[in-house]
Simulated assay, not measured.
Amino acid sequence: MYDALERRSFLAMLLVVSLAFLFLIKPFTGPIFWAVAIALIFNPVQNWLLRRMPGRYNLAALLTLLLCLFIVIIPIMLLISSLIAEGVNLYQKVQSGEISPGQYIDQITQSFPAIQSFLDRFNIDFERIREGAVATFVGGSKLLARQALGIGQNTFQFFLAFSLMIYLAFFLLRDGSKLVDLLIRALPLGDERERLLFAKFAEVTRATVKGNLVVAAVQGALGGLIFWILGIAGALLWGVVMAIASLVPAVGAALVWVPAALYLAAVGEYVPAAVLTAFGVLVIGLADNLLRPILVGRDTKLPDYIVLLSTLGGIVMFGINGFVMGPLVAALFVAFWGIFIREFNEPARVALGETTATREEQPPG
């Protein structure tokens, strides 16, 4: 009786302390998540180095982290800084009246009156759509300008988060397998099931990050390249916007290049409009269909509607990190239920089938 009370008290305190610890590290969710993602994605590089330098765990982790810095993190930081600079410049032009989003929309509708007729057929208020598009455009440029100001004012916080991510990524690369073994020993779920769940978590994380970010980066780079070739202003900015939009299923980067092609056609630039349309359909549009099965694989690919809901929900819950964390949570949800169905329901069906077969074999009476 007393031993049972001690055990329950200890488990209650363990739960309280664990929740307190999770609450304590909540402000660093972003750096922790990206450190885990870096460790999982670059784990094959770490293992490759260890096979050539047996026992040199610190050196292998350091070299792997340096490789990640030079080929991924530093280029992304340079891209983000250039994006914010272009966003500030765009916002200043919008404020000064040099750029008028509403004028561009009016130019398209004047050149293509069929658009207005099509919307009127379904009783869609074009003026409301126009106001929403202008507000979105102005709000987006204002957000980039605010982010630039925020980074300048919170430089210490930014470098603290960045340093924490790099620091954690180093130790996760070096001691990741030991930490997994420790968690397997600690969790009371059964070692085999726990190893399966951790393997699925690693697989889903790699697939989500590589599949979403790499495909988005490729589509954004292709979109920015064709904008630059055609002489469209702000090619870098629109390339990044296309990369973000590519995370939205069904439409993706077309949210950017289709209005651009319409505007080019509206102002009489028919050849650039045709080139942009052909490139958008044949190159940008097919990049997702060609790359995603290779990077993600068929087993972890989510339906488009789940990707859409999880991406939008992830942004609301986790901010900018939700582009990856939202689909990751959805993929883990699907994976966990798949394991549950396979391990708990199928044995029950087999047992039920055996019982039914036994009854059928028994002679009547």
Rank of each mutant, 00 (worst) to 15 (best):
T358V: 14
A245Y: 06
G132Q: 09
F318S: 01
N58H: 11
G280R: 01
Y263F: 05
L119N: 01
A199K: 11
I294S: 13
T109Y: 10
G326C: 08
S163V: 13
E360I: 12
G190V: 07
F126A: 15
K26D: 11
K178L: 08
V350A: 15
M77V: 02
K26P: 08
P101K: 00
E269F: 04
G280W: 00
A245C: 08
P327W: 03
G102Y: 00
F122Y: 08
A348F: 10
A243L: 08
L196V: 06
T109F: 14
A148V: 02
L312W: 04
G87T: 04
G176I: 11
L255V: 12
I71C: 10
G365Q: 03
F159D: 08
G297K: 02
R298Q: 09
P249A: 14
G268Y: 07
L49A: 06
A133H: 03
G280Y: 01
E194A: 14
P31F: 05
A357M: 06
F201Y: 08
F118S: 08
G140E: 03
A221R: 03
D181Q: 15
L40E: 12
Q147P: 02
L69Q: 04
T311G: 04
A331H: 07
V248Q: 08
L290I: 09
E194N: 06
P27F: 15
L63C: 07
L144H: 00
L308E: 05
L255G: 03
M317A: 10
R56P: 11
I76K: 09
R8V: 03
R298N: 09
G231P: 01
G140I: 10
T155W: 13
A39T: 10
L149C: 05
F162N: 09
L172D: 03
D175P: 02
I232L: 04
G132V: 05
F344A: 15
P188F: 03
S18H: 08
V36R: 13
G223Y: 02
A330S: 12
L282Y: 06
G220P: 06
